[in-house]
């Protein structure tokens, strides 16, 4: 269930980003390199390594998994350069998941709604 957003970029082959998170991952890489956490060549190196790893693991790499490689490369580079490790990301991702589940449909999602485990308050 992917609902295209009004601002989602399209070209004559379809959406350039298939889902909003792809655009967010893209923007994070651009912004972090602009602010110097890593250089753009460092980014493209990390990204191409991630693509090769995925291909070696059997990913046919047809373009549809492109931003999955992107997000994984970004996570690893942030872990090594920004001091945010995999466990911290997992913990925060779970907090966001709980925030969605604790928020009535149609209301804005706020992280604070997910900081307490369900039933703990």
């Amino acid at each position: 269930m992917i609902t295209p957003l009004p601002l989602q970029p399209h070209d004559d082959d379809g959406p350039v980003f298939q889902e909003p998170w792809e655009a967010q991952a893209f923007a994070l890489s651009v912004e972090l390199s602009r602010r110097g956490l890593f250089s753009w060549p460092e980014w493209t190196e990390a990204f191409s390594v991630e693509i090769k790893v995925a291909q070696a693991a059997g990913d046919p790499d047809l373009g549809d998994t492109y931003y999955e490689h992107w997000a994984r490369a970004l996570e690893k580079l942030i872990a090594s350069k920004g001091g945010i490790d995999e466990a911290a990301v997992s913990e925060r991702a779970e907090a966001w998941r709980r925030a969605y589940l604790n928020t009535p449909h149609g209301k804005p999602i706020d992280l604070s709604a997910g900081l307490n485990k369900p039933g703990s308050h």
Partner: peptide
């Protein structure tokens, strides 16, 4: 994966 990207963004 979307949750992980969202997590990265909020931590950063």
């Amino acid at each position: 994966i979307a949750l992980r990207v969202k997590a990265l963004e909020s931590l950063l």
